[in-house]
């Protein structure tokens, strides 16, 4: 009888707690739909608040970033709009729309930056990051490494395997190590250098991370930079950047959003 009472108590408790938990955490799709309605009704700031709530919860999608970009664009905050369009372009389902939006928003900026072509090695690394990814490269390297090791071992125990299999196994293992090194290098580059978009109207790029120092260049809203996180880490509130025209300098971090 006592056990039945205790069971009954726990069931009641679960019934009371579970719906509360369910209400407290709205599904990302529901929040997204709500934000879309606000966007359509012209309440851009409230829509942004809802979208950013999802962004903070790590519930990401191409549609989320695309709509965030559109919201900011309607608030005339073109730098932030560009930032989110760039994020949306990383998602297959919104890549095409994001590229169109980027072309449009880039034409709206008051200042356009000259673009210096990247070095071939940087192009290759960027291509690997965007199209394959470091994790995929690493997984491929692990598979190839295991194949190479198996080939090498097989030669010990299976006498009829030709002798060139041994050399072949060395080649396969070497390739796997090369792919693995490429994966780690790609990851290192991805972690150290990140793209950033300037979101304020105007800022100075200076030679040193100090308020009083020589001016390198003037930057304007929508300019893109490559941020060096390793160098920037030593100076809080400052970021060491490479401008798209090849110049290097420091910019107050508050002026940029890092992708």
């Amino acid at each position: 009888m006592k056990n039945i009472k205790r069971l009954f108590f726990w069931i009641i408790l679960c019934v009371l707690i579970l719906p509360t938990h369910g209400l407290g955490q709205q599904s990302p799709q529901a929040t997204f739909d709500q934000a879309n309605e606000l966007l359509n009704s012209g309440e851009y700031e409230r829509a942004i608040t809802h979208y950013q709530q999802l962004e903070k919860q790590k519930q990401w999608s191409g549609a989320l970033f695309l709509n965030l970009g559109i919201s900011y664009q309607r608030l005339d905050s073109l730098g932030k709009a560009k930032y989110y369009y760039l994020k949306a372009s990383d998602f297959e389902e919104t890549a095409s729309k994001a590229q169109q939006a980027l072309s449009y928003v880039n034409s709206q900026f008051s200042h356009q930056s000259a673009v210096l072509p990247k070095l071939p090695w940087d192009v290759a690394t960027t291509w690997l990051q965007k199209n394959i990814g470091a994790s995929t490269l690493l997984a491929a390297a692990i598979i190839v490494l295991n194949i190479g090791i198996l080939l090498f071992i097989a030669r010990w125990f299976i006498p009829w395997i030709p002798s060139y299999f041994r050399m072949g196994s060395f080649v396969v293992i070497g390739i796997s190590l090369l792919i693995m090194a490429t994966a780690f290098y790609t990851q290192y580059i991805s972690d150290r250098y990140r793209e950033a978009v300037m979101v304020t109207e105007e800022a100075s790029i200076v030679e040193n991370p100090q308020a009083e120092t020589s001016l390198v260049s003037q930057a304007f809203e929508g300019y893109t930079f490559t941020v060096d996180h390793r160098r920037s880490g030593r100076h809080p509130n400052w970021s060491y950047v490479r401008m798209s025209n090849g110049l290097y300098g420091w910019i107050p971090t508050e002026n940029i959003l890092i992708l």
């Binding site: 790590k58 990401w60 559109i70 072309s103 449009y104 991805s190």
Partner: peptide
């Protein structure tokens, strides 16, 4: 003038994967 309109309806949600390669168990 703006060539893109907002995306509504169902969206494909993902959670960003950890970027540290050494954190993969399979590695």
């Amino acid at each position: 003038t703006m060539p893109v309109s907002p995306v509504t309806g169902l969206a494909a949600w993902t959670t960003p994967a950890p970027t540290d390669l050494l954190s993969h168990w399979w590695f």
